[in-house]
Amino acid sequence: MIVVQLFLDFALLSFVAFGGATALLPEMHRVVVENHHWLDDATFTHLYAIAQAAPGPNVLVVTLIGWKVAGLAGALAATTAMCLPMSIVIYLLIDRWEGFAGKRWQRAISLGVSPLAVGLIFSGATLIAQAADFGWAAWLLVVATVMANLRLKLHPLWFIAAGAALGLAGLV
């Protein structure tokens, strides 16, 4: 059954989601688009865009993928699969956290994970660009966003609104 498969796939992914749902974009694309052919490239990019435009945690993109694959049951299954396993782990571990916080192996994992997360998020960006099949105008917008985001202290919503407006005007 597709909902069960969806649940198992995303539950497995939740264990490697260092850097949150954003870091999972490339793998979700691999599983959902390339392996199972549940969605096509265009739909995947659109769902990513919708999740960007909605308020809430980044995990919502998972909800939307679940919705498109298997309706409401899929949305709930995918979201639960992404959130529940680590919620249980953290519920059980939090009282012992002070016991191992700051230990050499704990700091080594934290330090070691961050370059991996950088690579995953960069991969996510290239994947969205590939799947959306950007033309030169869209690439220009990508570059402008990077520059503006790194230099100005603007709320992300302004960028989203600008992207939506430019796209609506048919310029991208």
Binding site: T45, Y48, A49, Q52, A162, G163, L166, G167, L168, V172
Partner: peptide, 8 residues
């Protein structure tokens, strides 16, 4: 498409 470009 515009939002996806910005998101990227």
């Amino acid at each position: 498409r515009g939002i996806a470009a910005v998101g990227c």
